[in-house]
C-alpha cells in the first residue's frame, strides 16, 4: 500500500513523467488484451467441452468409430473426424514439403538473383489467395481432372482437397526454408565447394543439415496450418464423417464439422451445439502442441548460425 502511494506521488509530481507513465500503462493494457484472447479461447472451449462430457462419455468420444451427432442415432466418436483431418493434411504435406523444399534449395543455391526476384513474388501470390477460392478450384477444376485419371472417383474426395491444400501451403515452406538456408554462413558453402563438392552435394550434405532446425520448423508450421484449414476441405472433401484412410473417399474434417453445424439450425443448448466445442478443443490442442514444438526447436537449436 505504501509503495503504491509513493508511486502515485511520484507520477503526479511531474507532468512529463505522468504522461510517460500513462502512455506506458495504456500500451501495456493493449498488449494484455492478447493474453486475454488466449485465456478466452481456452475458457470458452473448456467450459462447453466440459458440459459436452457431462452427457457423452469420454471413453466413447475416443473409441467410438462413428460421428453422427446430426442423425437420429447419435454417436460421438471423434476418430472419423481425426482420420479425415489427418488424411487430408497428410496428402497436403507430402505434396507441399518436397516441392516447397526443392524450390527453396533451388532459389537459394542455384537460381540467378534476377530469377529469384521474379519467381518468389509470383509464388507468394499462391499464399495470398483466399481459401474459399481454392475450395472452388478443388471442387470444380481439380476433381473433374482427377476423375478423368481415376474412374469412379466421387465428386467429393480427400485427394482433391489435399492436393489443392498442398499447393496452397507450399509457398510457406519455401519461404520459411529459404530464410533458414540463407541464415547459414556462406563460409560453409565455400568450404564445401573448396573440397570439390557439386552444388547438389553442397545443398544436401551441408546446407540442409545446417539449416535443419529452421526447415523442421517450417514443416511443423505447415502441418499445423493444414490441420486447421477449413474452407478447402469443407467445399471439396465432403461433409460425411467416415472412418477411412482411402484418399478417394469423401471425408469430414474437424473444421468441416464445425462449419456444418454453424450453417445449420442447431438449438443453442443442444448436445449438437456443444459438440462443436469438443471438436474445436481437439483441434486447438493439436495445433497448440505443434506450434509449441516449433517454438521449442527454434529456441533450443534454432539460432546456431544466426
Amino acid at each position: 500500500m505504501n509503495r503504491l502511494l509513493t508511486w502515485f506521488e511520484h507520477i503526479f509530481s511531474d507532468k512529463a513523467m505522468m504522461q510517460e507513465r500513462i502512455i506506458k500503462l495504456f500500451l501495456m493494457l493493449c498488449s494484455l488484451l492478447t493474453v486475454l484472447v488466449t485465456l478466452g479461447i481456452i475458457a470458452v472451449l473448456a467450459v462447453d467441452t466440459f458440459r459436452f462430457f457431462q452427457v457423452v462419455s469420454i471413453i466413447d468420444f475416443f473409441t467410438d468409430t462413428q460421428w453422427t451427432p446430426l442423425f437420429e442415432d447419435k454417436h460421438f466418436g471423434i476418430l472419423p473426424l481425426l482420420t479425415g483431418t489427418l488424411l487430408t493434411s497428410f496428402i497436403a504435406i507430402i505434396i507441399a514439403v518436397p516441392m516447397g523444399l526443392t524450390i527453396a534449395v533451388y532459389l537459394n543455391e542455384y537460381a540467378p538473383k534476377q530469377f529469384t526476384r521474379v519467381i518468389k513474388p509470383l509464388l507468394e501470390i499462391l499464399a495470398a489467395i483466399p481459401t474459399v477460392v481454392y475450395g472452388f478450384f478443388a471442387l470444380l477444376v481439380v476433381t473433374p481432372l482427377l476423375q478423368k485419371i481415376i474412374p469412379g472417383l466421387g465428386g467429393f474426395n480427400a485427394l482433391s482437397a489435399g492436393l489443392v491444400m498442398g499447393i496452397m501451403i507450399m509457398p510457406y515452406i519455401t519461404s520459411l526454408s529459404e530464410d533458414a538456408l540463407r541464415a547459414v554462413p556462406g563460409s560453409l558453402r565455400e568450404a564445401a565447394y573448396g573440397m570439390g563438392s557439386t552444388r547438389l552435394q553442397t545443398a544436401f550434405r551441408v546446407m540442409i543439415p545446417a539449416a535443419s532446425s529452421g526447415i523442421m520448423v517450417s514443416v511443423i508450421l505447415a502441418i499445423s496450418r493444414a490441420i486447421g484449414e477449413t474452407m478447402i476441405v469443407a467445399i471439396a472433401a465432403g461433409q460425411q464423417a467416415r472412418l477411412t484412410l482411402n484418399p478417394a473417399s469423401s471425408v469430414e474434417t474437424i473444421t468441416t464439422y464445425i462449419v456444418q453445424v454453424s450453417m445449420g439450425d442447431v438449438p443453442r443448448d443442444s448436445i449438437e451445439y456443444k459438440s462443436i466445442f469438443a471438436a474445436g478443443m481437439a483441434l486447438f490442442v493439436f495445433t497448440f502442441i505443434l506450434n509449441n514444438i516449433s517454438f521449442w526447436i527454434k529456441r533450443r537449436i534454432g539460432n546456431k548460425y544466426e
Binding site: 492478447t34 470458452v44 477449413t230 464445425i258 462443436i276 495445433t287 497448440f288 506450434n291
Partner: peptide, 22 residues
C-alpha cells in the same frame, strides 16, 4: 506476451470463430 502472440498466430481461424460466437 511474445510466446502468447506466436501461439495466437498459429491458432486456426475457425477457433476464433468459436471464440467470437461465445
Amino acid at each position: 506476451l511474445e510466446i502468447n502472440i506466436a501461439n495466437l498466430a498459429g491458432v486456426p481461424s475457425i477457433i476464433y470463430g468459436i471464440l467470437g460466437l461465445e
